[in-house]
Each structure stands twice: as C-alpha cells, then as structure tokens.
Amino acid sequence: MLFRPGDLYAGFTIGSLLGIGGSSEVYLADDGKGPLALKIMNTESSRSELARLRFIHEFEIAVKLSHPNIVQMFAHGECDGRLWSSHEYIDGAEAKGPLRNTEPDPTLAVAILTGIAHALDYAHIQRVVHLDVKPANMLISRSAPETDEVPEAGPHDPDPKLVARVKLSDFGTARPLDGVGPKLVRDGFVVGSLPYAAPELLRGQPVRPATDQYALACAAAELLTGEVPFPITNRLKLAEAQVHAAPPDISRRRAWIPSAVGSILRKCLAKDPHARYSSCAEPIRMIARALRDINPYD
C-alpha cells in the first residue's frame, strides 16, 4: 500500500484501500466535501509515458460524460511524482455471473444489462466507444441514489431503482469515434479484454458502437450462465474463435433460458458489426421481455 488511513495526500484525507491494480491503487478518501474514490498511480507507472497517457486519457474522456449509469469523474492532478484522479465512490461490488451449479437472479442480471446499455448508448451519442465492457467494469451500488428523477418502468422493464444502482466504470481504453487520440497500447497488444473483444477490434479495423454491443452480449452470456460465449483459456484459440467461429446458442447452456434470448445474443455477436442491432438498449429490452417472470428454479 502506498498510503495508510489518515494520511494526507494532494488535499485528500486517505481512508481505506478499495483496490489494487497493476499500476495504481484506489482509496476511499475525503476532500472535505464528502467521500469519493481516489485513484493514485504508483511512482514507476507515473514515469511511463504510455501509462501517463492512458491515465490522463481516461480522465479526459470520462469527465465529459454525465449519465446516472456512468461513474462520475471529478478532478485529476499530480503530487509527489504520482498522478491521481478522483471520482464518484460506489459503495458496492462488481457484477458477477453465477457460480458452477448455481443459477443467477435474472431480475438483477437484466437490471445490470439495462443500466450498462443506457450508459453505452449515451456514450455513443457523445461519440465515445468504451472498448472494455465486461462484468468487472459494471458496478452495483448497495442502494439507489436519492432522487425523484427515477423514470417509470414499462411492463417489461426492470425496477428503475435497481437499474439506477448500476454504474459503468473504467474508460481507460475508451476512444472517440473519430479515432483521434493518443496511442494507448504497444504494438501487438489488443485494446480491451479478449473474452469480450469483437472481431473488428481484433482485426484492427475501425471500432463503432456495435463493438461495445458485442462485448455487452458477451457479458450478458456470462451474467446469465457463468461463461462468456467462447470459454477458451488459450488466448490464440480464443482470438480465432472471436474472429471466425459461429456464435454459440447461449440458451442451450441453461434449460430455463428461452430460445429467444439465444437468438438475440447471436445477432449481437454477429461477425459483421453492421448485422448487429442499432443500439445497445434494443436487444436488452428484448431479453428483458423474454425473461419476464422466469424463475431458474421452477
């Protein structure tokens, strides 16, 4: 750990450690106005030109996005040779798929997917693609925000208060749709996470909103069944499957999943991005309708 509870850094009072990554640590902190999350890059990474570019790029992308399902960025700076950024503190946990021999809560899964789909469609309108959509970047707070602006739910929509607890995080590999921006990875490295990577991303072709939709479908498969569409551990074989293999029928993995859900996800996973849906919310609404009143244990 770089800091201990009670330490002062860059005007923040450090609290408990929230997480440790390869290049930074995240702390619960207070700036005198209330709790927030403080991400502090370690000294070695702060000296790396590539790491600095990614750190600052994430802030500059995310700070422009204001949506109830996106973790809000506040400020960034440098102190004692380390870069830091502050953002909204989410008192909760990452989304996870069901463990082996257990079933998920379809209501929660659909709420998570709905919130993330709303966040992605908003980001796409702002001309930003996330490029690292996966359950680890989907946060679920313990309670809904206190606001009177919760939309009414339709007959097939998940509980809006549950959807309001969902937040999309980590814009470290996000890109403007016009492609303008710093080079964020070394040659030969793939942006994002391979189990959720769309074929066009792996081919080095232009990315688009449908690229995030592909990753969202991979995450949906994991949240509903515990496995991504292609649960392959060998990275070369996994990349080959993402680019060339026919999308699997997710509904065959669990008896309670309607065949319609498998068909919807297969379209999201089409190799040609033009063959996918026109938005992220569209397929998730269809999945919500198909899973309405489904109980995996019936």
Rank of each mutant, 00 (worst) to 15 (best):
S251M: 02
K267W: 06
S143W: 01
D178P: 06
A144Y: 06
L194P: 05
T233G: 10
E200Y: 08
L162N: 05
L265T: 00
A275R: 13
G204V: 08
A215S: 15
L202W: 07
S141K: 03
A221H: 09
F230S: 00
R276I: 06
N234V: 10
D148Y: 00
T173P: 10
V163T: 13
D170I: 14
S263I: 03
A246P: 01
V185T: 14
C218P: 10
Y196I: 08
L265R: 00
Y214I: 00
H156F: 11
V166F: 02
I140T: 09
N234C: 09
L216N: 01
K161W: 13
L238V: 13
S263D: 15
H244M: 13
R276M: 10
L201I: 10
G172H: 14
D178A: 10
F189Q: 14
A144R: 05
Y196G: 05
I264T: 14
P209M: 14
S169K: 00
A144F: 05
D159L: 03
R276L: 08
L224A: 11
L194M: 13
A245T: 09
A210R: 06
L184K: 15
D178Q: 08
G226H: 07
F230H: 04
L168S: 04
P182C: 11
R186K: 12
G181T: 10
K167H: 15
V163A: 13
S193R: 09
L238P: 13
D178S: 11
E149G: 02
A245H: 12
L238Y: 11
R175I: 15
R175F: 11
R252E: 15
F189L: 11
G204I: 09
D212T: 03
Q213P: 00
T147F: 02
A210V: 05
S169T: 13
E222S: 04
A198K: 06
R142S: 13
P247R: 02
D148L: 02
E240M: 12
P248C: 12
T211N: 07
L223G: 05
V261D: 01
K237F: 09
L184I: 15
P151E: 05
S259N: 05
R253T: 04
D148M: 00
N234P: 07
A217N: 04
R165M: 12
P231E: 09
K161E: 12
G181M: 11
A198R: 07
V228H: 01
A198C: 09
A164L: 10
W256H: 01
V261R: 02
H274W: 04
R175K: 15
G179A: 08
R203G: 01
A219I: 04
D212A: 05
A174Y: 02
C268K: 06
A215F: 07
D157Y: 05
E227N: 06
P176Q: 15
V150H: 11
R276Y: 07
D157M: 07
L223T: 07
V166E: 03
L162R: 12
L238W: 12
P145L: 09
P155G: 02
L216R: 02
V228E: 05
S141C: 03
A174N: 01
E152W: 07
A270R: 06
A275E: 15
K237S: 11
R208F: 09
I140W: 10
G192A: 03
A174E: 02
L223H: 07
D272E: 13
L224Q: 12
V261I: 02
